[in-house]
C-alpha cells in the first residue's frame, strides 16, 4: 500500500506539469475574479471565502480524469486488481495521493490568494482549516467519479457532471465555515458538519469506488 502511494507521488512529480497544474489553475481563477466583478476591496472581501472555495473545488476536479485513467490505459489497474491488495485500499491510496498532490498544495496556497482578494485578517485561519477538512472529501468523492468513468473514452466531461452535484454538501459547509470565520461569526456548526461529511466519505465511499471499479474491470 505504501509502495503504491510512493509510486503515485513519484509519478506525479515526474510526470512534468501534472503536479503544479491544479495550483496554477487555482491561481488563475482567483486572479480572474477581480477582473470580472471589479476591484472594490469591500466586495472582494465579502466574496473571497466563497471564491477561494469554488476555485479550490474546480482545481481538484481538474486532475480527476487522470487519477485512474492512466493506470487503466497501461494495464496497471488489471494487475493491481489481481494483486494481494484489497481494491478498497487501492482506491483509498489513490485518493490520498490525489489529495497530497492536489488538495494539500491548494490548502497551502489559499492564504496567499486570500491576500489578493482582501480577505479579512481573522478569516485566514478558518479558510485554511475549512479547506484542510474539506479537500480530503473532494478527493475521495472525485475518486468515486473517476472510478465510474474510467472505462470511457471521453469521460472527463461526464466526470464533472457526476461529481459536481456530489460536491454540494462539502462546498456549502466548507464555504460557510470560511465565510463565517471571515466576518467573525461562530463556526462550530458548519465546521462539525464539514468534518462529519469528510469522515463519513473517507470511511465509506471507497467501498462504493471499489465496487464500481470491479464492474469496470470486467
Amino acid at each position: 500500500m505504501i509502495a503504491l502511494l510512493l509510486r503515485d507521488l513519484k509519478l506525479a512529480i515526474r510526470a512534468g506539469g501534472g503536479f503544479g497544474l491544479g495550483l496554477a489553475f487555482f491561481l488563475i481563477v482567483t486572479i480572474l475574479v477581480p477582473f470580472s466583478v471589479g476591484p472594490q476591496s469591500a466586495l472582494l472581501a465579502t466574496i473571497a471565502p466563497g471564491v477561494l472555495w469554488l476555485g479550490a473545488l474546480l482545481a481538484c476536479l481538474l486532475s480527476l480524469d487522470r487519477l485512474l485513467a492512466l493506470d487503466w490505459e497501461d494495464g496497471s489497474l488489471d494487475l493491481l486488481a489481481t494483486a494481494p491488495l484489497p481494491l478498497e485500499g487501492v482506491v483509498s491510496i489513490k485518493a490520498l495521493a490525489h489529495w497530497i498532490t492536489t488538495g494539500l498544495p491548494l490548502v497551502l496556497a489559499a492564504p496567499v490568494l486570500g491576500v489578493l482578494l482582501s480577505l479579512p485578517g481573522q478569516g485566514y485561519v478558518w479558510l485554511v482549516i475549512s479547506l484542510l477538512l474539506g479537500t480530503p472529501a473532494l478527493s475521495v468523492i472525485g475518486t468515486f467519479g473517476a472510478a465510474l468513468t474510467v472505462g470511457l473514452k471521453r469521460g472527463g466531461l461526464l466526470l464533472s457532471l457526476l461529481v459536481l452535484p456530489l460536491y454540494v454538501p462539502t462546498l456549502i459547509y466548507g464555504a460557510e465555515v470560511a465565510r463565517r470565520g471571515a466576518i467573525g461569526m461562530e463556526v462550530e456548526t458548519p465546521l462539525l458538519m464539514l468534518a462529519g461529511i469528510t469522515a463519513a466519505t473517507v470511511a465509506l465511499l471507497p467501498f462504493a469506488s471499489a465496487a464500481v471499479l470491479r464492474v469496470n474491470l470486467r
Partner: peptide, 13 residues
C-alpha cells in the same frame, strides 16, 4: 445519500 445530505446542507445554508 448525497441528495439527502444536500437537502440538509441547503436548509442550513
Amino acid at each position: 445519500v448525497f441528495a439527502i445530505l444536500s437537502r440538509y446542507a441547503v436548509n442550513f445554508w
